[in-house]
C-alpha cells in the first residue's frame, strides 16, 4: 500500500471463481468459458466465410481470405516452402485460435487473456511437440531423426561431445517449454500491465480534486491497450511461425 494505492495480489487478477461443476476436476470458470467462446468464434467465422464463396470476395470472405493468405504466404512459404503447404489448415487454426484467445485481453467485459493461464499454452505446445517429433521420425526414421538432430553436419567431431547433448535437450525439452512459457508470460505481463495502469488511474482520479493527476496514467493506459492488440497479434504470429519452423526442420534436416 503506497499513498492509499493498493495493487491487487496476483491471485486476484488471474484466478476466477468457479461458475459450474464446482469442486470437480471439470470446474468451469470465466477462462474456460472464454476458451469455448474462442473455439466457437473461430469455427463460426471460417464456416460463414466459406459458406457462399464468390470469385470476387466481399465482407467476411475477404477477411478470411487475407488471413489464409497471410498464413500461407507469410508463414508457410517463408519457413517450410511449397512442401509444407499441407500444414496450412493446421497453422491457420492455431493462429486464429491463439489470436482470438489473446484478444480477450482488451475486450471490455472479458478482459482476461485465456493464455494468461498456462494450461492452454502447455496443451498447444505439447500438441506441436507431438506433431513435429512424429513428422521427423516419419520422414527421417527414428535413427536418422536423432542422428540429424544431435550430430548436425559441418561440425568438427570433437565438438560433438558438447553439441550432441545440447541439441538433444534443446529440441526435446526446451522447445515445448519455451513455446508455452513465451505465450503465457507475454499475455500475463500484458494483463498485469493493463491492471497496474487501470488501478493507478482510478486511484489518482478519486484522489485529486482536479482529475489532472489521472490524465498521464490514463493516456498511457489507452496507449498500452493499443500496444496489447499488437502483442496479441505478434504472439499468435510467433507461436504459429515457430510451429512451422519446428515442423519444417523435422521434415528437412540441415544438409
Amino acid at each position: 500500500m503506497i499513498l492509499g494505492l493498493e495493487f491487487p495480489p496476483i491471485s486476484h487478477t488471474i484466478e476466477w471463481p468457479a461458475l459450474f461443476l464446482k469442486d470437480t476436476p471439470f470446474e468451469v470458470n470465466k477462462v474456460v468459458l472464454l476458451m469455448w467462446l474462442s473455439v466457437a468464434i473461430v469455427f463460426a467465422f471460417y464456416l460463414v466465410a466459406s459458406r457462399k464463396q464468390k470469385l470476387v470476395p466481399t465482407g467476411i470472405q475477404n477477411v478470411a481470405e487475407s488471413a489464409v493468405e497471410f498464413v500461407r504466404e507469410g508463414i508457410v512459404m517463408q519457413t517450410m516452402g511449397a512442401q509444407g503447404l499441407g500444414y496450412t489448415p493446421f497453422l491457420l487454426a492455431i493462429f486464429s485460435f491463439v489470436f482470438v484467445c489473446n484478444i480477450w485481453e482488451i475486450i471490455p467485459g472479458a478482459q482476461m487473456p485465456v493464455n494468461a493461464r498456462i494450461a492452454l499454452p502447455v496443451l498447444m505446445a505439447l500438441l506441436v511437440w507431438l506433431i513435429f517429433n512424429f513428422v521427423g521420425i516419419r520422414k527421417q526414421g527414428l535413427f536418422g531423426y536423432f542422428k540429424n538432430m544431435m550430430f548436425p553436419p559441418g561440425v568438427p567431431w570433437p565438438l560433438y561431445i558438447l553439441v550432441a547433448p545440447i541439441e538433444l535437450v534443446s529440441t526435446i525439452f526446451v522447445r515445448p517449454l519455451s513455446l508455452s512459457v513465451r505465450l503465457f508470460a507475454n499475455m500475463l505481463a500484458g494483463h498485469l500491465l493493463l491492471i497496474s495502469f487501470a488501478v493507478l488511474s482510478t486511484a489518482l482520479f478519486s484522489a485529486s480534486a482536479l482529475y489532472i493527476g489521472a490524465l498521464a496514467p490514463f493516456a498511457l493506459l489507452v496507449g498500452l491497450t493499443g500496444f496489447e492488440i499488437l502483442v496479441s497479434f505478434l504472439q499468435a504470429y510467433i507461436f504459429t511461425i515457430l510451429t512451422a519452423v519446428y515442423i519444417g526442420g523435422a521434415m528437412n534436416p540441415e544438409h
Binding site: I75, Q78, T79, S178, R182, Y237, I238, L242
Partner: peptide, 10 residues
C-alpha cells in the same frame, strides 16, 4: 522480417 521475429522470439 520473418527471421527477425524468430530471432526475437528465441
Amino acid at each position: 522480417r520473418t527471421t527477425m521475429f524468430l530471432g526475437i522470439a528465441f
